[in-house]
Amino acid sequence: MTRRLIAIGGLWLLLLGILAVRAPNFFAPENLRDMAITNAPALVVSIGMTLVILAGEIDVSIGSQFAVLSVVAGILAKSGLPLPMVAFGTLASGAVLGSVNGLLVTAMGIPSIVATLAAMAFWREFLRWTTQGAWVEGIPATFQWMGLGQTGGELAIVGSAAILFAVATWVTGNLKLGRAVYAVGSRRESARLAGIPVSGVTFGVFALMGAFTALAAFLDTVRFTQVQSSAGVGLELKAISAVVIGGTSITGGKGSLWGTLMGVVVLAAIAPALTFLGVNAFWEKAIQGAIILAAVVMERAAMKGDRAHAR
């Protein structure tokens, strides 16, 4: 895990080095600020995804959930509810959506990739059907920046993500609850024998994932005055990539939120960095794929001989 961090860190420093020489403007405070705000929601969902993957599961439905929850937030705001109620309503809806996934996985015994694949298609098509692509327009002006003004709102967005990160890091590192997630992900049967409610933990990470997706959708929509109904396409791949680049084992039980933070930062930097370097946009996707592949292969090459992970 740390090897992958070193490998990825090396690649990243190389990119930063090139940027420092070729486009020092990249490091201008305004750019860093804008990148932080834009990617705060991505960090929030990646934290949730880290927990899901640590528990040995996966959730590919968050992009669709994100779109549904953005519209929920927009509609609640439009209906004139006070902002805290809007936030609460969105988070509660998110928890419900996540719980549906949790139930499919724990109670019905459906492998998480299949259950959330179904949820992904279901919620996306459901939203397309109900909204027919229409945006939520005419939201009260106090919704944007949560009524705190631009600077205040920006601070609140980045602050919320940072606080969530700090809390999640502390909980996974120090509380029994956090260790239970690792235990379930590394060996379910042992975890069960050790008295950990395996189904409860699994259900819990999915419910949390839903709530975090809702928070991300909320933090994302408050930056604007309209809500689009097609947001979040590909968000699940971005979050999974961030988690994996951050060294968390896709089979569960191993990894850390610090790694995920790094993964989010690396992915966040790639697109703007290429613009700053004047690289043609057409190659972006290929470069992103190559970086993930390189990260995985480099790490594995470093631990050649270790046969513990056949899959």
């Binding site: 996966i58 791949l237 999974i240 990539s241 994996v244 896709i250 089979t251 190659w283 972006e284 996707k285 290929a286 470069i287 992103q288 794929g289 190559a290 993930i292 592949l293 995985v296 292969v297 594995r300 992970h309 899959r311």
Partner: peptide, 16 residues
Amino acid sequence: APPLIVTLATYSLFRG
């Protein structure tokens, strides 16, 4: 490397 991650990477790589 786990197939999910490898093919996730090549998913971007080939399309890119």
